[in-house]
Design a protein around this nucleic acid. Structure first.
Lengths: 348, 348
DNA sequence: ATAAATGATGTAACGCGTTACATTAGTATT
DNA sequence: AATACTAATGTAACGCGTTACATCATTTAT
């Protein structure tokens, strides 16, 4: 193997000092005479010497790299969370690998292994398989075999108790659902539907569970036949709304699994000659960019994106440095209502 | 330093063979007796041994990691290109770091250094400073100092001649602008405006240059006062359109710098009581998800996303392996018109 | 049966930054 | 001036996978 780049030994030779001294200068560790320090720094600069982090990592067992695994970065929700993770990562000196699984379990396994080979200091899992209880188990097994004891943080999902060094940060979608229902009933709605999502995915299951509970509290408000699942996409919103419109009696307000679906719902209403919010109030989830594009713009429940990212990184960092985490390894953050124009009092 | 994980030496000891033999099994290199291979493999499996890529990389001078630097992943265009890069990267065994500069030059410099320390095998630059000629020069200097001779590929930008081991892949926005104009004139438009973007950014400058040329070919069609620059955002579209509406004479067709701006334009038209495409035809650029959300949906010029990503990776790979690149280091790909409902013949 | 060739495996150096420990230089104390 | 420290610097092992080269085992050729 040829050695291309300049190494610490080259710098040491040039300065007539030992590599240890150069290393001390680089890391500001130990004691170095001011004169020596200046000499070394000037030579480093002159040669554009850049330390090899592989070598450092090999010895220190730290790579200052973490991995983020998520389904698809083109999804605005994931992109926003990722961006916040990365912003926070800078503060901890971490750089981040992004791996898109395309919702393919095999690819998720593959990347998990890859990141392990790369000795990442931590792993953040986002919206992937960990949310589906069925496949959850085998993935945890894989994690244990492949990447343990690397710290893992799940965003909007859980792994608790099955893997040490694991924490989670979530948006409280359960509570948010109550916010949604109470907001709409506050506006005067007594007939509320729910569109989009699919069972087996946590963000759907949680919302349905909350809805179930809400049903018993406001029993005149939510009916089974106004719940139409489909998917998480704009088209899913279109489809679900079309399905809903087949019912003889219709709700006056619609909660959507996310803003993409809400946009599909809004546009379908408009296409079919209904007015939003006059005929239907439509409420979204996520506060993604799409919610400000539709006309009317969509009232939605916003994730605390910035906190999701920063707390996830904080957890990772705590676990890396063996700081006590205690019982606060699973944090749930409040979502906030962003009022726009897609919701109003129901038509009399 | 404690050694946590199982190393190749542990496996070797357990098998009563040398590390070289284990390495041969791992890499399928050299010759290994079938019996030995099976033994080694079984022990590897039993111990869940995962080779340390840092150590491998230290010797082989390959990390199988590349870096992608772009302004903000939340921008749908960048997300789509990134996704395609990553998909292609898999085929070359590469995993990718994603670095968001937030359009901050200092952060771009910082990440460039970081990625160099991490010994990335290649660097892909996307929509960043490399497109602005002013700051271009200093960044090239930095690149040379910091990361040379690591291969660099620019997507929709150039660096040519100033850095060896550099290639570029671009959407031919110049030609696309002619497609746009000729499409609109084909529909019968003789008054065409242009909204959004800002000077100093390549995708704006190129389009303006093409527009200038088009002006001379279709001289009755494009007027200086119908060109309103602003930004790349939805709001930029709103602002530019509002500005345009102040003109006494108005165009019948509007080309927008991208789909976000086009969406702002469309919605502003509607808010102001105009009909799209009846009063104004609106043409977008990028074919991002937003173009199917507006009503009407936006006719747009699509980037060849998949090729952009796969060719960029192919270039990186060629340069890594010293394959001849010759004159094909700067490729320009055709954009394609995606017809939807925002453009039609002008009102009589 | 012996030489020649091929197959299988081992040894040790290498890549490069870090750090425990040793050594030398320099300053303070008495 | 001699002792006791502290500061400054050097030496060498370490982390771990790879590979050139050496060595030993087989098989084929003569």
């Amino acid at each position: 193997m040829k050695k291309n780049k300049i190494s610490i030994r080259d710098i040491a030779r040039e300065c007539n000092v030992s590599v240890a001294t150069v290393s001390r200068v680089l890391n500001n560790s130990g004691t170095v005479k001011e004169e020596t320090r200046k000499l070394v720094q000037s030579v480093i600069e002159r040669y554009n010497y850049i330390p090899n982090e592989l070598a450092r990592g090999l010895y220190t067992q730290r790579t200052r790299s973490i991995g983020v695994i998520l389904p698809e970065i083109t999804n605005h929700f994931f992109a926003k969370v990722f961006l916040e993770i990365e912003k926070a990562a800078i503060d901890y000196g971490q750089t981040v690998f992004l791996c898109n699984t395309l919702s393919d379990n095999a690819l998720q396994d593959f990347y998990t292994l890859r990141l392990s080979e790369k000795q990442v200091d931590g792993l953040i899992l986002l919206g992937g398989r960990v949310n589906e209880t069925k496949t959850n188990v085998q993935y945890i097994k894989l994690l244990k075999n492949v990447i343990y004891p690397t710290p893992v943080v799940i965003i909007n999902g859980k792994l608790e108790n099955y893997y040490d060094n694991c924490a989670s940060v979530s948006s409280d979608e359960y509570e948010a659902m109550f916010q949604a229902v109470s907001y709409l009933t506050g506006l005067g709605h007594r007939k509320i539907g729910f569109l989009g999502g699919m069972r087996g995915i946590m963000s759907t299951d949680i919302k349905l569970k909350a809805l179930e509970k809400a049903k018993s509290l406001y029993d005149y408000t939510i009916r089974e036949e106004w719940i139409k699942l489909s998917s998480y996409t704009y088209q899913g919103g279109v489809d679900a709304m079309l399905e809903l419109l087949k019912e003889k009696e219709l709700p006056t307000a619609i909660i959507s699994i996310n803003d993409e679906v809400a946009a599909g719902v809004v546009n379908t209403c408009i296409s079919k000659g209904y007015k939003v919010p006059y005929d239907f109030s439509v409420l979204g989830f996520d506060n993604s960019s799409i919610s400000t594009i539709t006309m009317p713009r969509i009232t939605t429940l916003a994730h605390p994106y910035e906190e999701l990212g920063s707390i996830a990184m904080e957890f990772i960092n705590n676990m890396i440095n063996d700081k006590p985490m205690k019982d606060i390894t699973n944090i749930s953050l409040k979502m906030s209502l962003v009022e726009r124009e897609s919701c109003a009092a129901p038509r009399k």
